[in-house]
């Protein structure tokens, strides 16, 4: 595999006493579509802004295509297409004027491509930007991010503000134009169903830490829910990778990462259990709001099987 297109190493950032990113490390191979998942305030936007050299990190190292944005932000920005979360554009310009205005900043700007995109996204090229709908502004931001054929594209919550049909169109463009042209895409999102279909791999960011990375298939293979009776495992210590525990009277339903090992132990001990496949949604939830304090401690009755 080629060198990573985006490399993040031990990144730290605080705002005052609040640690926003804590030792975040990430490698995104060239050509991969990578989704950054996290709740509001998890640190996604901060990380993206550091990647573009818009704000400095407290410590750690970042490279995009081998270039450090903290040292050479302009080169990085010429290689990267960026859609900000709250893209502010000159309301008095028209979309076509904006494209003409931006073109000289990018040696590789493609005016035909820009016009083509405006047309396909149904953005009136000669109307005032200030009068565009929310969805149209997002799409215009995308046009601007993509029109210089960047090898790396970073999109901060591109789906936000798009209606379901526009989102599907956007995802289709992402698949058709960016993935097939070998572009590396990093985007943040809350829409896990869509992420699952489109992304190669995901990272779950929670309270400034990356709690899990992996391809979507791998996550589904490794994170499982297990159902069994409380008595059968009572008194055993909580297994490694335990994410969430839910008790329903004498039944226990828990979600566990890298479950294969634990399931193997259950089978070896002859403990009755069910393994349930989870959706990406449920996996995400387990990582960010999972609670493990309900793991049964003492055996509920003396007849319980010893571990």
């Amino acid at each position: 595999m080629s060198a990573p297109a985006i490399r993040v190493d031990q990144l730290k950032k605080s705002y005052g006493s609040q640690q926003v990113l804590q030792n975040v490390s990430l490698n995104i191979p060239a050509g991969q579509t990578f989704a950054l998942l996290g709740r509001n305030g998890a640190g996604k936007t901060t990380m993206i802004r550091i990647l573009l050299g818009l704000i400095p990190a407290d410590s750690g190292n970042v490279q995009l295509g081998g270039i450090d944005p903290a040292i050479d932000p302009l080169t990085v920005r010429s290689h990267v297409g960026y859609l900000a979360e709250d893209q502010a554009m000159y309301g008095w310009m028209t979309p076509i004027e904006l494209c003409r205005f931006l073109a000289p900043f990018y040696p590789t700007w493609d005016m035909n491509w820009a016009r083509d995109y405006l047309d396909r996204f149904g953005i009136p090229p000669h109307g005032r930007i200030g009068r565009l709908s929310k969805g149209q502004s997002v799409k215009l931001g995308l046009v601007v991010a993509l029109s210089h054929h960047p090898p790396i594209v970073i999109l901060d919550d591109p789906a936000m503000g798009l209606d379901p049909i526009a989102r599907k169109e956007f995802n289709r463009d992402l698949v058709e134009h960016l993935q097939t042209s070998g572009c590396t895409v990093l985007y943040s999102s809350h829409l896990l169903d869509e992420v699952e279909a489109v992304a190669d791999a995901v990272a779950i960011l929670d309270h400034g830490r990356i709690v899990r990375t992996g391809t979507t298939d791998l996550l589904r293979d490794e994170v499982k829910q297990i159902l069994l009776s409380c008595d059968s495992i009572a008194g055993t210590p909580p297994p490694e990778g335990l994410l969430d525990v839910c008790r329903h009277e004498d039944r226990l339903a828990f979600i566990i990462d890298r479950s294969e090992n634990y399931v193997g132990q259950l089978i070896a001990k002859g403990i009755d259990h069910d393994v349930v496949d989870l959706s990406l949604d449920e996996i995400f939830e387990a990582f960010v709001i999972g609670r493990t304090q309900d793991w049964p401690g003492k055996p509920a009755n003396s007849a319980a099987m010893s571990p």
Partner: peptide
């Protein structure tokens, strides 16, 4: 590519 586009699913 065609199927990826049609289904809106990752090419890989």
């Amino acid at each position: 590519r065609q199927l990826a586009r049609e289904l809106v699913v990752n090419v890989n």
